[in-house]
Design a protein around this nucleic acid. Structure first.
Length: 497
DNA sequence: ATAGGGTTAG
């Protein structure tokens, strides 16, 4: 109890004053220290134990994993006596990797667990929830489907946790119909279940469905939370429904008493900026009840780019660089603004400054799941074993794409403004590598599903549309914020994203 | 009695 009230010292005194101490008393102390992040103290108690139980081990593993120290977690895990290596120990590892965004390692641990489970442990609901979350993040649909089958085979109940995790996995893997089926099968639904469906609709550009989902939710007596409003605002942004978005933003505080967080302002500024209402967006930033961050200013900057409002853009860049001197996008944008005014010297200075400050951009990365394995590609990557085949597939597509009307978008501006900038254009963007690998390694006619860590650039978006047409394949590309379904030369986002 | 889990913009 004293741990829960933030008084580990009191808990420790009580422990020391106990006339007798058993394994459970030790475990309680370890768990307490672990939960408040004091792994040194937990380790000291753990090392002093003469007799340990599975609880002692899993508390220690989870404690290290929560702090992101997966190396120590792993070392401990490997030391657990076989008899004590129960399902909770495994779960601590799987969830540890998942919570630290090391999704493919989470999947690997799960697969190791399955190898072992034939004799000793079986995954339970907690394991599956963790792995499904990793699948959702990786876009690993095959494994996700396998887990769905496993749940059915073992006749496991679709409780709130498992149902939500399964539904979210389908949604994030691009199968919105399946996600809804799971939702419908669930006996009990909470605010998270509804939010998953609303945000799934938003991610797929189905704004009307998102809005009707929101109203259904209210009819069912479920109260939206701040995350639900994030989802509904994102739906309005993706659908260009500016007035609706502003109404929901109003409604959030007025009817539901939820104070907008910086994230909500980010959505609204994005909503207005994309629609070209730049001065309204800037007014909102200047009247915010919380200090604006880089994301909020960045959303306005995005609008300045689209609508070529260079004067405002330059102003916004200065604000961003005050907050984050390493913001790569701003340097790139600023140099473009200078270049467009013919101030080439200043443009060059800006690029130089970027190099001096060692501004690092997130490298573009895409991945695709083929035969239960996730294949990862970086910009210009040649490390894949089948790299030669991949590149020859890309070059063989080239002439066919040109014939079908594809014009590479190589203008200086487009190279500057995309997230992966100029020098990358000499290489191949990661999503093209992943799609090409999909083309050479899957059966004709199957849908190709690729996930990307950044947003897709205009040029690749055009290329994907053409490729879907000439190879007669559906390409589902999930980028950082939404899904693009390319089919017969068109994209589900209607080129608004 | 003490351990492990799901939703969030750009």
């Amino acid at each position: 109890m004293y741990f829960k009230f933030g008084r580990p010292d009191v808990a420790r005194r009580l422990f020391d004053e106990m006339p007798q101490r058993d394994v459970v008393s030790y475990n309680t102390l370890i768990a307490g220290y672990s939960n408040c992040g004091n792994l040194a103290a937990a380790g000291e108690v753990f090392d002093g134990m003469t007799e340990r139980s599975p609880v002692s081990w899993s508390s220690m593993i989870a404690g290290h994993a929560r702090r992101g120290d997966l190396v120590s977690a792993r070392e401990l895990f490997d030391r657990v006596p076989a008899a004590d290596r129960n399902v909770v120990c495994w779960n601590a590892m799987v969830s540890g990797f998942t919570q630290n965004e090391r999704f493919s390692e989470a999947v690997k641990v799960f697969q190791m667990m399955l190898q072992e489970s034939r004799t000793s442990v079986q995954p339970n609901e907690v394991t599956l929830v963790s792995v499904l979350s990793s699948c959702a993040n990786l876009g690993a649909l095959d494994l996700g489907k396998w887990i769905d089958g496993y749940i059915k085979k073992r006749r496991m109940a679709l409780g709130l946790f498992l149902g939500n995790a399964l539904s979210d996995m389908y949604a994030k893997c691009g199968c919105i119909v399946e996600a809804k089926k799971v939702f419908d099968r669930m006996v009990e639904k909470d605010v998270i279940s509804w939010t998953i469906i609303i945000s799934a609709s938003a991610m797929h550009g189905l704004s009307e469905e998102a809005i009707s989902g929101f109203h259904d939710m209210l009819v069912h007596g479920i109260k939206p939370n701040d995350i639900t409003f994030m989802a509904i605002l994102a739906a309005c942004t993706h659908g260009g429904m500016v007035e609706d978005g502003l109404n929901y933003f109003e409604m959030m505080s007025r009817e539901f008493g939820i104070n907008p967080k910086v994230e909500h302002y980010g959505c609204v500024v994005d909503l207005l900026s994309r629609a070209g209402r730049l001065s309204e967006a800037e007014d909102i930033i200047n009247s915010m009840s919380v200090p604006p961050n880089v994301v909020v200013w960045g959303a306005l900057l995005g609008g300045c780019r689209i609508y070529k409002d260079d004067a405002r853009g330059e102003r916004v860049v200065r604000r961003i660089l005050e907050l984050d001197p390493e913001h790569s996008g701003s340097y790139v944008y600023l140099s473009t603004v200078y270049a467009s005014f013919g101030r080439l010297e200043e443009a060059a200075k800006c690029r130089l400054k970027m190099r001096e400050n060692r501004v690092v951009k997130t490298p573009g990365c895409s991945w695709i799941e083929v035969d239960n394995a996730v294949h990862e590609f970086f910009v210009g990557d040649r490390s894949h074993p089948q790299s030669d085949k991949i590149y020859s597939m890309i070059s063989s597509l080239g002439p066919r794409m040109k014939l079908a009307g594809y014009v590479p978008n190589t203008s200086v501006v487009s190279q500057f403004i995309d997230e992966e900038e100029k020098e990358d254009a000499l290489f191949m963007h990661s999503e093209r590598l992943a799609v090409a690998f999909g083309l050479i390694s899957t059966k004709e006619g199957t849908t190709i599903r690729v996930v990307k860590n950044l947003r897709v650039c205009t040029d690749c978006h055009d290329a994907m549309k053409i490729i879907s047409k000439i190879v007669e394949r559906e390409i589902v590309l999930r980028d950082r914020s939404r899904f693009h379904h390319f089919k017969e030369g068109r994209c589900s986002c209607k080129d608004y994203w």
